[in-house]
Design a binder for these strands. Structure first.
Lengths: 395, 395
DNA sequence: CCATATTAGTCAACTGTATGGATTAAATAG
DNA sequence: CTATTTAATCCATACAGTTGACTAATATGG
């Protein structure tokens, strides 16, 4: 019970950053006494902080500004991807306090080896955080591939070449011991959550975050949560069929969106060499070359993006009819390409989504681009701390 | 706090029907004393009942079987549809205690008039329930059309001819006053929930319930809840595009599934006259005629269902990739037609859903058919009572 | 047939947590 | 300088669930 109420108060503090105890009492429905007591506990755990005096009304005693303690607990986000490992540390105020990206060709390397490298990266991050007076509360790892979270397995990560890898166990061994047990989740899901917590996804209620990478994934966020599906495989937007009987796809089907609007397909259509593995936001990747072409109004490149956009929009129309999102967020490689791809997406989306709905959801570009997944991973820890502050009490 | 704990205990009682206090204590984590106290409160409210003695282990004192009181509170489900009004009363044991369906051509009638007829039906149902010693705790109304539940409006119900009707207010006036305030929801959503609570949808984890009526709607159930979408318009499966540039649809688009696998399209393809409004499970409707043809292996009819099934399956493949349901449940007109349509659905579904997933979700026929929506409506009340038993305490 | 083990349920004292009303603290208005 | 308003805290109280001992009802085994 205490646990729940601590969470309620802490959530309210986070939402309204500098608040007085009196206002918290109004908002939460607790008495001022209770709020004071709960805040005392949270302050003891280093989660909140008293600040300057603030006068609320016209006259009367000024209140004490309570805010989240930016120098107490911190969250560690980690990411394993095809050609890099990444780590970031966020404080509870959601500011980035440390960020590290190490290029690393992980294809074919043994999972144990990759994860122990990740462990070293994590240890560095924890040390760096400690140097800034931050105590890392927990970590989450972003992984590319299909996960079986119940059993702690990576079912298949085609781009890493992993099959049925017991990540949970490996991570337990490799990561430093932290108060909150380590978690892991799909890259696309975490990127979508990052959009919710750090981008402006929250303004739209629910949304679909489209991650363009080698494949095309989507994270569907509704009511502040990712839609996972019964087996955790929801959001496979890239394998919706756009051209029945079209080009064969790695999934075994034909005419999947991925084959038409995926990174390789776009590059090929634009006359650039396709690459087998690349990161979305890399400043010098093939996407950079593509953008150069686009900025010089290269006709082939423009046509490539128009075609991809139309396919993507038509597919999203299906998703909109099924899921009714408040917005479509273009992430991954689609984020830097948004100016060129958005018009076609919007056009196709408008044609395909029923006129019954008042308005077609707006299509916006993510501002997080390549860092979305790591940020989301750290965000999970932050949400965890806020939702269960009792985990950080007492030894 | 008490409220929550009452709900926890009651939920457990419902789940394990006859249970002893000792077992409840184990399952809920409360002490035996606490369970006893909470049960005393619930018994006072007429929600649970002590039964016969039951011996649990090999030896030792036998426990008292606690079960839901089937003769205490009851739930009223109501439905407004194009050509009928319906009401049903369920007890907390989920048994149907009263059921009434009145044929009524509601097209064009003023909403006030329809709702006051519904009010009379509701009053009869409450009286009938009282005659059986049941106290109706609340009611929910199933409506065909797009709802704005926040503002209590029917936005559009094309088949009823309603636009922006303030149902909430009208219902408040027309329905008898009950301890739990009346609610309303979309027909398709409630049918899906009925499948969850009264069919065997629960076994599959999450599922998509496809309602074939004049149009084709779907209720997506995940984690025991309906996926509503940001504006409450999720599940518009019938307006996913199957044939780009195909036949124009009432929604303004072209080639929507509804135009290929909807009731009218199937009837037409089978060589039967299309009808503008009919209820799925009516024993003497045009669907009955269609089934007659099918049972006599009429080639045109068989081909019609094969074609509709392939279109439906292809569309569902998109839905499966996006939402990852544990099963597809065929409801509405698809339920009686399941034997003939299922093979094509399964075939198309198998082709279109990515091979990444281990298994394509099973396609099953709903056993509830036409009554699903009313049952779901009553089910909502039952869930409400179980989730907030405190609402039925004290005056 | 009776003692013992075993399981179910209740009773009485205890503890933790939030509430309510009064109190102290710090500002502005006149 | 006093009255008023708002903020925060103090202290006694009530509620709810826990703890551990106790009673009740059955089966086992000598």
């Amino acid at each position: 019970m205490r646990e729940r109420n601590l969470a309620v108060v802490l959530e309210q503090v986070v939402r309204c950053q500098p608040v007085t105890r009196a206002r918290l009492a109004e908002q939460t429905g607790f008495t001022k006494t209770t709020v004071s007591n709960l805040l005392a506990v949270l302050e003891g755990a280093g989660l909140v902080q008293d600040g300057a005096l603030v006068q609320g009304g016209e006259r009367g005693r000024p209140g004490i500004a309570v805010s989240v303690n930016g120098d107490g607990a911190a969250a560690l986000g980690l990411e394993i991807n095809v050609d890099y490992l990444a780590a970031c540390v966020l404080d509870l105020g959601r500011r980035t306090r440390y960020h590290q990206l190490v290029t690393f060709d992980n294809r074919g390397r043994a999972p144990e080896s990759v994860i122990s490298s990740l462990g070293r990266l994590a240890a560095e991050a924890v040390a760096a955080a400690a140097g800034q007076g931050l105590a890392v509360a927990g970590a989450t790892v972003a992984l590319p591939g299909l996960l079986d979270r119940e059993n702690g397995l990576v079912r298949r990560a085609p781009n890493l070449g992993w099959t049925d890898v017991p990540v949970s166990a490996l991570l337990r061994d490799a990561l430093p011991d932290l108060p909150i047990p380590a978690a892991h989740d799909n890259e696309a899901n975490l990127a979508a959550l990052a959009e919710l917590w750090f981008g402006d996804g929250a303004r739209h209620g629910g949304f679909i975050h489209v991650s363009g990478e080698i494949g095309i994934g989507a994270g569907i966020v509704m009511d502040g949560q990712v839609l996972r599906g019964t087996h955790g495989f929801a959001g496979e937007l890239g394998h919706l069929v756009v051209e029945p009987g079209g080009a064969p796809c790695t999934c075994g089907g034909r005419g999947c969106l991925e084959q038409i609007a995926g990174q390789d397909a776009i590059l090929r259509a634009a006359g650039l060499p396709a690459v087998t593995a690349t990161t979305a936001a890399k400043p010098d990747g093939p996407i950079r070359e593509l953008i150069d072409l686009l900025e010089h109004s290269d006709q082939r490149a423009l046509a490539a993006l128009d075609g991809a956009g139309r396919a993507l929009g038509a597919t999203l129309a299906s998703a909109v009819n099924l899921v009714d999102p408040g917005a479509i967020v273009l992430g991954g490689i689609f984020s830097p390409l948004a100016s060129w791809i958005r018009p076609a997406v919007e056009a196709a989306l408008g044609e395909g989504s029923g006129s019954l709905r008042t308005a077609v959801p707006p299509v916006v570009a993510s501002e997080l681009a390549g860092n979305a997944a790591v940020l989301g991973a750290a965000g999970v820890v932050i949400e965890r701390v806020i939702g269960h502050p009792a985990l950080l009490l007492s030894p």
